[in-house]
Design a protein around this nucleic acid. Structure first.
Length: 616
RNA sequence: GCCAAUGUAGCUCAGCCUGGCUAGAGCAUUCGCCUUGUAAGCGAAAGGUCGUGGGUUCGGAUCCCAUCAUUGGCUCCA
């Protein structure tokens, strides 16, 4: 519905002749009103009583502001090119007429050509236009979101030997995190009432913070956070490319009326951000699927090309999660996700590919600093798929090396027949999915993706959807939570060295050692190591303390002794006392830890005296 | 989204229940002193629309209502 609303000194109209056969039966007579708000209204396709209600509410709100209690509803088709049928339009207008409370409402006749004369007031709120759509009153919730709660699931724990046990028959004593996951997923029971520790850490370490000027769940990343993110992004991208993914880039917004979109909407349980622009109803992508599928559907593919893998690092994917679900970096509305699709000729090929990607995901998580003890696996499948492919399910469980949470569906509801994921279990027993892969049997057809098989017949591929790491922000969340649990156990928390914003901090004792210290730092920096210098006029104790608060692994204090010695004095966060080593040995030690990882330069001023204080 | 709690200086918090001087502290910042040996050297200054809007009152950070944000629970995911 489109409304042009005018606050008028006066309006006068005269119905001249019937414009359409559905016109109202009235006695045509001239009407004149003074001190009135006139709403020129075009009722559009899809408008109904909820739109009528919403519209009248909005009109009433704005009338309150201008202090007017008289309203004229004036049918005005020319505001839209997507009109509702005359009968619907008339009924919607009548509803609006009846829904207004506390107002004197008039309605100009429908279906008549009218001449009119209008005198509009000169104040800023006198003229407004409104577009009222159904989405704004009643959330456009996808079918998948709506019926997700109706799905019937059967929960088990699968042992390494492939046997499936009910929770009650499984001994969780040695598998407390798995128990947490099982309860979390199935019983939906969570009893925590403190904020997750990573929230304060992400602020204290100047990694990320909320951005009040944006929507919730859209974070700002400070230089430290951007550096860490960037390192992770590059690492995961490198790994996917090594595995055989080809990197692409696709738009972040799509037309929801595109035929492939409309039906996908209803198969993917996510809420979207929507944008109306130039009459189009666009939504922000919640994964890279659309872009890649639309792209690949234009490819000419043979079975010889498969498996074929496309990869995109989405910065960002958007999911308009319910506000109550958002917490720190754990759950966001805008997030960065590596998303790799493999197009496979059939199920056997898909299964082969699935195994490769399973190993890849495990190895990626490991290198990011999350080991097997940090996450638990869940695997979900339809009963039919399981009956035919028990062996692959067992194999994945064996690869994982620990019992696994199983969810089995009687019928296939989603577009996939199997999905596994690794869940990080945090300090408060909450589970969040990181890596995941799915076997998609539907979207090949939906998006018209085809390849030609040996018999020259077009076929739709089976598609795998893998994120080897899960959302990058969530990796940071997991690393921070892990650090927080170290802290709780009295251990010094740390980041993997290759992710640390500063790897080496140089502290000259006195001003006179500045030059020497700077030279040393330059030498280290040339080795692609992030080094900075605390040149502030503060005590040694203070500067060491500040470095420790930033979790800096190596602190080099430079004084008379060091200048006169060949060796460097190293305060190593991993050990409790300082030690001496030669420059070469020190560089070697660092190189060994970071050699297989990407390198980004220091993302802050080299001199601490030049750094603004971001967080304390 | 629903229910609950919280929102005071850049950060962490006190003050609120029981309304009344100029709204306090520590850290950070600026300036000065100190010139430094491995987790906080000393002093001073500056810094606040008490989340926002409305109400009650002679008077609101304090009581009431609405709203926004954060956190927790429900629900949900990468």
């Amino acid at each position: 519905m489109r409304i042009l609303q005018l606050h008028c000194d006066e309006i006068e109209y005269t119905p001249t002749k019937k414009e359409i056969s559905a016109a109202e039966e009235i006695q045509p007579e001239t009407k004149r009103f003074e001190e009135i708000v006139v709403a020129f209204i075009a009722v559009e396709d899809g408008d109904d009583s909820t739109v009528a209600q919403k519209a009248i509410n909005e009109i009433q709100d704005s009338m309150k502001k201008v202090g007017c209690k008289k309203l004229l509803l004036y049918p005005y088709a020319h505001l839209s090119s997507n009109l509702a049928s005359p009968s619907t339009a008339l009924s919607v207008l009548k509803q609006m007429e009846s829904l207004g409370t506390d107002l004197e409402i008039h309605r100009a006749p429908f279906g008549w050509t009218k001449s009119y004369k209008v005198q509009v007031k000169g104040h800023p709120l006198a003229e407004t236009s409104k577009i009222i759509t159904k989405e704004r009153t009643e959330e456009e919730t996808s079918e998948a979101v709506k019926s997700e709660s109706k799905i019937k699931s059967y929960w088990y724990i699968m042992e390494l030997d492939g046997s499936m046990k009910k929770f009650s028959d499984f001994n969780f004593a040695k598998h407390q995190n798995l128990e947490a996951l099982a309860k979390y997923e199935s019983v939906k029971k969570r009893s925590v009432d403190e904020a997750p520790p990573h929230v304060s850490l992400m602020k204290k370490l100047a990694i990320a913070d909320y951005e009040p000027a944006s929507d919730s769940g859209n974070m700002r990343f400070y230089p430290n956070g951007r550096l860490i993110k960037s390192q992770i992004e590059r690492y995961v991208t490198d790994r996917v490319k090594d595995y055989g993914g080809y990197e692409v880039e696709t738009p972040i917004m799509y037309d929801s009326h595109h035929p492939s979109m409309a039906s996908y909407f209803n198969r993917f349980p996510a809420r979207q951000y929507s944008i109306n622009a130039e009459g189009k109803h666009l939504f922000l992508r919640f994964a890279a699927c659309f872009g890649q599928f639309l792209m690949v559907s234009d490819f000419q593919m043979s079975y010889k090309n498969l498996p074929y893998r496309l990869y995109e690092l989405t910065r960002y994917s958007f999911r308009r999660e319910q506000s109550g679900e958002l917490v720190g970096l754990r759950r966001l509305r805008a997030f960065t996700m590596p998303d790799c699709h493999a197009f496979c000729r059939d199920i056997p090929q898909a299964i082969d590919e699935l195994k490769t990607r399973f190993d890849l995901s495990k190895d990626v998580l490991n290198n990011l600093g999350l080991d097997d003890n940090d996450y638990e696996m869940a695997i979900r499948f339809t009963e039919d798929f399981y009956k035919e492919h028990k062996d692959i399910v067992h194999e994945l469980v064996k690869k994982h090396g620990k019992p696994v949470l199983v969810e089995m569906w009687k019928e296939r509801f989603f577009y996939y027949v199997l999905k596994w994921e690794f869940n990080y279990i945090d300090n408060l027993g909450k589970a969040s999915a990181l890596s995941t892969d799915q076997i998609d049997v539907e979207n090949g057809q939906r998006y018209g993706i085809e390849f030609v098989d040996e018999n020259n017949k077009p076929q739709h591929p089976i598609i795998l959807h893998n994120s080897p790491s899960g959302a990058v922000e969530r990796i940071i969340y997991a690393l921070l939570e892990k650090a927080a649990s170290d802290l709780k156990r009295g251990k010094k928390p740390h980041f993997p060295l290759w992710l640390a914003p500063t790897q080496v901090r140089v502290i000259p004792i006195k001003e006179e050692f500045l030059d020497y210290a700077k030279n040393l730092a330059n030498k280290i920096s040339e080795q692609q190591i992030r080094v900075d210098m605390d040149d502030r006029n503060e005590s040694i104790g203070k500067r060491v303390r500040d470095a420790e608060k930033e979790w800096i692994r190596y602190i080099l204090v430079i004084g008379e002794k060091e200048i006169n010695s060949k060796n460097i004095n190293i305060r190593d966060r991993e050990q409790d006392q300082s030690r001496e080593a030669s420059y070469e040995a020190f560089i070697d030690e660092i190189k060994k830890q970071i050699s297989s990882k990407p390198f980004e330069k220091l993302n802050a001023p080299f001199f601490l005296s030049q750094r603004p204080q971001i967080m304390v």
